[in-house]
């Protein structure tokens, strides 16, 4: 580890300043206070100077010590080994630029890889842990084994872009994003100090990381949630009735409602169950269905279906079954003819 210390010249200069101050005051208590101040200042300065960015498992990580570097390496390896998610900030940059391909080149060029901090890696690992039963090797033992893992890469970049049009600009308000086409999710620099989604930065980071994973990993229950909650007519139109979503941000769209609901299920379970019992029932049934042993899977699926159906109500439950068969030829077939 490279830890920069104050040079002898710097130490000497600091001591000289302190001595001069004490001499001027002529009070030995001042000299003692200055000595303490000097020691504390030196430690703070040493810590500040010792920060460095190291390349760990191909990613840039901001660390203060060898111990932190080792910790970061262990986390990155665990996330890959246990959860089947590779930390790849380059992939996030590629995905961001591809999604916002119509934004001016100058704005897209601003999207760059951003170094990690240890707290962000820790938050990501916590987020992955919520989904452990359907990630990595465990997924093969779950009821989600036949669907490909929806999140395979997670990265960190400087910015996203606000809209995929010629007026798109690199924004500083997007905290995280999920890229379905690339099975990639990530966070952006603004999340480093943001507390919009938690009581402090660490809590907000865990929330944002879990939310991004939820966009991919829980998408398959979106329609169940829509029917059960009765809040959305479709992905972006409200019914004007139904169960109120978990948060203000969950009112943005059905997809955000789902991601917020799943995140609240894992992180604020008790409060979520109380505020959003219908959404809770949908997520709870889905999560409980993951872990069932293969022999018990049919019964589990039936139980989960019953729970979802109960939450959705008899009328809503019938809609999905009828929908696929009824619509096939309506619009698409009509167009073809």
């Amino acid at each position: 580890m490279r830890v920069a210390r104050l040079s002898p010249e710097q130490e000497h200069a600091a001591s000289a300043v302190s001595r001069a101050g004490a001499a001027r005051s002529g009070d030995p208590r001042h000299a003692h206070a200055l000595a303490l101040q000097r020691a504390a200042g030196n430690r703070a300065a040493q810590l500040a100077i010792s920060r460095e960015i190291r390349t760990i498992q191909g990613e840039s990580v901001h660390v203060h010590s060898d111990a932190q570097a080792a910790s970061a390496e262990r986390i990155i390896k665990r996330i890959r080994r246990r959860y089947g998610i590779r930390i790849r900030s380059g992939q996030l940059v590629t995905s961001t630029k591809a999604r916002y391909s119509k934004a001016p080149a100058g704005e897209r060029m601003k999207v760059k890889k951003r170094h990690w901090h240890l707290r962000e890696l820790r938050a990501l690992e916590k987020a992955c842990k919520h989904y452990a039963p359907i990630l990595g090797a465990h997924r093969d033992e779950s009821t989600r084994k036949d669907a490909g893992q929806e999140v395979k890469y997670f990265g960190k970049a400087t910015h996203s872009i606000d809209t995929n049009t010629a007026s798109g600009i690199a924004d500083s308000s997007t905290l995280g994003e999920y890229y379905r086409s690339d099975s990639t999710a990530g966070i952006y620099e603004i999340a480093e100090n943001d507390t919009s989604f938690g009581k402090d930065v660490d809590a907000s980071l865990e929330w944002v990381c879990t939310h991004e994973l939820s966009h991919g990993l829980m998408d398959y229950v979106e329609e169940d949630l829509r029917k059960a909650a009765g809040y959305w007519k479709d992905a972006s139109t409200k019914t004007g009735a139904g169960e109120e979503p978990w948060s203000g941000y969950a009112k943005t769209s059905l997809g955000e409602d789902l991601a917020e609901s799943a995140t609240a299920y894992f992180i604020k379970r008790k409060a979520f169950k109380k505020k959003c019992p219908k959404r809770f029932a949908v997520i709870d049934a889905a999560v409980k269905a993951w872990k069932k042993a293969p022999a018990a899977a049919p019964a589990a699926a039936a139980a989960a279906g019953a729970a979802v159906g109960a939450a959705a109500g008899a009328a809503g439950a019938g809609v999905g079954a009828a929908a696929g068969a009824a619509v096939g030829g309506v619009v698409i077939g009509g167009h073809r003819s």
Binding site: R99, K102, T163, N164, Y178, R180, S236, S253, G255, R336
Partner: peptide
């Protein structure tokens, strides 16, 4: 089937909606 991408606009359903 529709002959290409047509007129492309950002969709309202999700951040990645086309």
């Amino acid at each position: 089937e529709l002959g290409g991408p047509g007129e492309e606009l950002p969709g309202a359903a999700s951040a990645g909606s086309e």
